[in-house]
Structures are given as C-alpha cells and as structure tokens.
Amino acid sequence: MHIDTGSWHRYMALPAFLLFSLFFLFPLMQGAVLSFTDWDGFSTPSFIGFQNFVDFLHDARALQDVRTTVLFALGSAPLLNLCGLALALLLNKKFRGKQVVRALLYLPAVISPMIMGSIWYLLLQPKRGLFALLLQRVGVSGQGNWMLSSNLALVIIVLVNVWQYAGMTMVIYLAGLQAIPLEHYEAADIEGASSSQTFRHIVFPQLIPSLKINIITNIIGSLSVFEAILALTDGGPGYDTESLSIYILRMCYGNKTGYSTAVALMLFLIILIPVFISLRFFNKVEER
C-alpha cells in the first residue's frame, strides 16, 4: 500500500495548530474578553469598556510591580544566558564524570517548586538561614537584613533564579553545540585555528539558534517571574518585591478577575516589546 504524501509537507503544522486552537487559543480569546468587564469571579460580569486599562495606569501597586519586574528581568535574563553558555562550553569538553556534573547542574530545576521555596529560604533567610549562621560562625555578624532593602532583595532573587535555571539554559546551548557538524571542527583543526578563532568563526555562528531561543525564552521567563520571588520574599515587605505575575495571580483569585485579565494583557505588551526587538535583530543576523 502506498499513500501519496507528495504535498503533505506544507500542512504539517496543522495538526499541532488545531489542537492548540482548541485547548489554548479559543479559551484564551474567551478569557481576554473578561478584561473589558468588572467580573469578580462569581457574579454576572458587566461590560465596562477600557476602564480596567485606565485603572491600571493609576494603580500605584501595579506600577511598582512593573518596575520590580523589569528590574528583575534586566538582571536575570542576561546573567542566565551568560552562565548557561559558560556552563555549556565547559561541559561540552570531554572529562570523566561529565554526565554526572551535567545532571547536578540540572538538579536545582528538577526539585518541585513547592518545596524549593522552603529550601532557598532555609539557606538564605536573614539572621536564621544556614548562610547567616555560617557567616556568624566565621565572625561576620549579620546586622543587616537583605530582605528589608528591596534592591538588595532583588539582587538575591536574581542570583537564586540564575542558580536554579542556568541548568535549563545550558541544556539548550548544549543542544546547539552538539548540532555543530564535526567536519567544521576538523577543518578548523587542519587549518590550525586557535581556540578563540574556532569559537568566533565555527562555534558562534552555529550557536545562533540556541542564542535566539535562550534570549527570547529568558526574556519571557524573567518578565513573568513569580516562583523565585514567592519563595524568597513572598513579594514583601508590603508589596516591595512583588512582580506583575504575582499581582495578576492575587487579583485573579481576590475578586478582581476582570481587572487581573487586563493586567495580564498589559504584561503581554511589556513582554512583547523586547521580544519583538530581539527577533528583528536575529532575523537580520540570520539573513547575513
């Protein structure tokens, strides 16, 4: 039996897209409509036009959350990429126990996020955490409390986030490094290229797909951060370190479902801008 598959290749995205439409796109569009209502989550919603979006612009807590979110992303996205790339380059070399080291680096991301929170806090809690106690023992008595300074708290949250997810970024870079055809290395070897030359001319161009993926997913991931923050500061003190995603979650189940949808759409816009710019940049690089 022979099935003619001659023109199938043009429609190979359709099965994925149909399933995606059913379980994501349609519910999403239904949900997005709520951003124009005052829905509290249980009673009948009424249509209020763009009021939610106007409210957003006057919502001091939301605007502070935007600032926190953007600051976090500015620190987290580049650092994650740098660390992920460095780790991938390091672990692409051959040495005994490489497989185990890779698994170890990946480990922080595997631990259930539910318990991850308590573990990080056990380590880092001001005055009582294991690090604080260790510092005390070596004579550095911690008078300060990093959690009470929102900027310092953000720095620590960024570092923890990198610690936790650098392994995942590394995985994608590794996939990219592995995708470099062997002949390229061999050719470079034969021509006697130095290792920095090899990196510039052989490795780097081949890394562009993974670079693109990592930069874009890290922008998205960093701008929608919530787990790392919930674990370490719970957004506190007050709402000083709250991110926009946490705010959306809290509003959604705090009787402001309609408003939370509008804020979610605003977050979408905030994510869209840097992603759009990066995509344009990469399209140019790829064309060259």
């Binding site: 003190p237 709402y239 705090g254």
Partner: peptide, 21 residues
C-alpha cells in the same frame, strides 16, 4: 468582611508599619 480583603493583605500593611514605611 469582603472576601477580597484577605488576612494576607492586612498583614502586609503591618510588615510595612514595622519596617518604618
């Protein structure tokens, strides 16, 4: 009290109070 007013939210005001905000 309205269900939109959680003990979590009122507690955050105390955090800020104790933090000297």
């Amino acid at each position: 009290a309205p269900s939109g007013l959680s003990v979590d939210d009122t507690g955050r005001l105390i955090q800020k109070l104790l933090n000297g905000d």
